[in-house]
Design a protein around this nucleic acid. Sequence first.
DNA 1: CCAGATTAATCAGGGCACTGAGTATTTTTG
DNA 2: CAAAAATACTCAGTGCCCTGATTAATCTGG
Lengths: 151, 151
Amino acid sequence: MAAADLTTHPGHLARRLQQAHYLLWNAMVSEEVTSPQFAVLNTLVAEPGLDQRTVGERVGLDRSTIAEVISRLGRRGLLDKVRDPQDGRRSLLHLTDEGARTHRRLTVRTARMNQVFLAPLTADERTVFFDLIRRVADAAEGLRNPEEPID
Amino acid sequence: MAAADLTTHPGHLARRLQQAHYLLWNAMVSEEVTSPQFAVLNTLVAEPGLDQRTVGERVGLDRSTIAEVISRLGRRGLLDKVRDPQDGRRSLLHLTDEGARTHRRLTVRTARMNQVFLAPLTADERTVFFDLIRRVADAAEGLRNPEEPID
DNA sequence: CCAGATTAATCAGGGCACTGAGTATTTTTG
DNA sequence: CAAAAATACTCAGTGCCCTGATTAATCTGG
């Protein structure tokens, strides 16, 4: 059996793309705060007081991973975690001042990094790039998170 | 400062795409052998006897990660690792019969999975999808792995 | 009202991904 | 030829990512 051509395997390309991004993020945005951590901060800027599970849903992280990410952000004083008095199962999350400051600072750098990352593409191609990736990712996520079935 | 729109952040999309692929791989290809492990097997089908570092280069994994992946594949009897008598620093890698069998089996399933994964796109769109991701990933990898500079 | 189902979070365990430091071996160079 | 540089690999440390099992709290139906 001949070897497969990995350059036509979307999973392999997705991994390479993500790794390339990881390196550029480290070089141009932050060595302290990672891209998933920034996504969490960003979500809490938009919707302060969310519980942990919902934040994970917003940024696309499962219950275990979001717990670790939030624990790290809490340790570094970027967010606070308070038991919901209305529902003792939940922890409600808010950015600290330091967390909000960090988010502002990184937002600027992230925009610069995205320019460099997408430099090989024209403006039209970028639009297509986003559209195609979003459609594939949404569809694949839909396979595992089925919509409410008809009852 | 307003929150950023993560759906226009290529790094965030890349991560979601990779995660969606990870889940589909687990469901449709194998729970034992991961996608990076398959990439290593595939490389050794094409070029038996490569050393560890070169395999890592082919599949896009750094020295530490490739060491772990190869160690796991070795433990499961899918490949053999032999000291190069010509150069005592290197280990040369070959698939075992079991490794070659596994590669054959997974190649078929991987093709099926890719069909499902790419189902949202037309044939033309798939070509564009590969082209755009490859260009961005290649360019970003080039930023860190500079070509031989002019001397 | 209360037993059973559901839900949010945690924990244990396996795998991927990187950096920086260290070891052994080979190659280069003075 | 011996000292210095380069190379292949290993190890320790951090962080992301998932599943399955467990715990605590809430909700639901009889």
